[in-house]
C-alpha cells in the first residue's frame, strides 16, 4: 500500500524542485563556502587561529555568560510557568503576553535599552552604584542581555507540560502526609525534567550565538567582555576572512555537539519516564 500510494498526490516534482532549489541556494551553497574556506586555511594555521589567547578568552566569556544566563532563566522560567499554570490572578494575560516580547523585539532595540537602563546613570544602574556594582559594560551586562533574549524559552517549554500534568497523584501523596518538598522532588520534577533540560539547552545555544543585544551593553573589552560572535565581527571588519571562518567553524562544531548531547539526554529522560 505504502509503495503504490507513494506518489499518488500530484505535485511531487513541483514541490521537490522548489524545495531543493531553496535549500541549495540559501543553505547548502553558503555553508559549502564556509567549509571550503575553512579547508583552505590549513591545519596548522587553523589550530593557531582557533586557540590564540584572545580567542580562548572569548570562548570563556561566551560559555560562562551562557551558562549563568541559562541557569537563571531555567529557575525563573520554572517559576513563571508555575505561576501561569497553577494560579489565578489579575493581569495573568498581561504577564503571558509580555513573555512573547523578547521573541519579537529586535535585538538592537533590546541592546540599547538594556545598556541605557543598566548604565551608571540609568534607572537601574544608578541604584546599584552605591553597592559598588557595575552592570553595563561588564560581564554582568552580558548576562543581563542573554537573560532578556532567552526569557521565553524555558517558560514556553514547561508551560504545556505543567498544564497537562494531572495533579491527582500529587494530591493523594499530600493527603497521605507527604511533605511538599518531597512531592515536588519525587513526583513533579521527573515529569517536567525533560522539558527543563530542553529549555536549558535552547537558552544556552541561543546565548552562545547572540550578538545584537549584547554588543551595546558588553563593553567589548578584549579578554574580559568580548564574546566570540563579536570577535568574528572584528575579524571581518579587518578583512581577516580566514580568521573569521575558523571561529565560525569552531562555534558551529561546539553548538552541534552541545545540542546532540542535550537531545540524547532528553531522549534518555523521556524513555526512563516511560
Amino acid at each position: 500500500m505504502q509503495q503504490t500510494s507513494k506518489r499518488l498526490i500530484p505535485g511531487y516534482y513541483f514541490s521537490l524542485v522548489i524545495t531543493l532549489l531553496g535549500v541549495s541556494l540559501i543553505v547548502l551553497l553558503p555553508f559549502a563556502a564556509l567549509v571550503i574556506s575553512g579547508w583552505q586555511v590549513g591545519a596548522q594555521q587553523f589550530w593557531q587561529e582557533a586557540t590564540n589567547s584572545r580567542v580562548l578568552a572569548s570562548y570563556l566569556v561566551s560559555i560562562k555568560g551562557a551558562l549563568v544566563a541559562a541557569i537563571i532563566n531555567t529557575g525563573f522560567g520554572l517559576l513563571l510557568a508555575w505561576v501561569l499554570t497553577q494560579y489565578e490572578f489579575p493581569g495573568k494575560w498581561l504577564l503571558d503576553s509580555l513573555l512573547d516580547l523578547p521573541f519579537a523585539l529586535p535585538t538592537a532595540v533590546a541592546g540599547i535599552a538594556l545598556a541605557y537602563l543598566f548604565s551608571d546613570q540609568g534607572w537601574l544602574g544608578r541604584l546599584v552604584v552605591p553597592l559598588g556594582w557595575k552592570i553595563s559594560y561588564t560581564f554582568n551586562g552580558i548576562v543581563i542581555a542573554m537573560i532578556f533574549v532567552t526569557l521565553p524559552f524555558v517558560v514556553r517549554e514547561i508551560q504545556p507540560v505543567l498544564e497537562q500534568l494531572d495533579f491527582s497523584v500529587q494530591e493523594a501523596a499530600y493527603t497521605l502526609g507527604g511533605g511538599t518538598s518531597t512531592i515536588l522532588r519525587r513526583l513533579v520534577l521527573p515529569e517536567i525534567l525533560p522539558a527543563l533540560v530542553s529549555g536549558f539547552g535552547l537558552v544556552f545555544a541561543r546565548c552562545l550565538g547572540e550578538y545584537g543585544s549584547i554588543v551595546f551593553i558588553a563593553g567589548n573589552q578584549p579578554y574580559h567582555t568580548e564574546i566570540t560572535p563579536l570577535l568574528i565581527m572584528f575579524k571581518l571588519e579587518a578583512h581577516d576572512y580566514s580568521g573569521a571562518t575558523v571561529l565560525a567553524l569552531v562555534m558551529l562544531l561546539f553548538s552541534f555537539t552541545f545540542s546532540f548531547i542535550i537531545h540524547s539526554w532528553q531522549r534518555w529522560l523521556l524513555q526512563r519516564k516511560g
Binding site: T19, V23, I26, V27, L28, L29, P30, F31, A33, L34, I36, S37, T107, A205, L208, G209, E210, Y211, G212, P229, L230, I232, M233, L236, Y241, A244, T245, A248, M251, L252, S255, F256, S259
Partner: peptide, 29 residues
C-alpha cells in the same frame, strides 16, 4: 532535508552574515 531546513535556526546571526560574505564577497566563489 529536515535537518537542512532547520539549520539556519542553530546558527549565530554573525555566522549567517559571514557565509554570504564568503560566497559573494571579494574572493568568494
Amino acid at each position: 532535508l529536515n535537518a537542512l531546513i532547520d539549520l539556519p535556526f542553530s546558527v549565530s546571526p554573525v555566522i549567517a552574515g559571514l557565509i554570504f560574505i564568503l560566497t559573494f564577497g571579494r574572493g568568494g566563489w
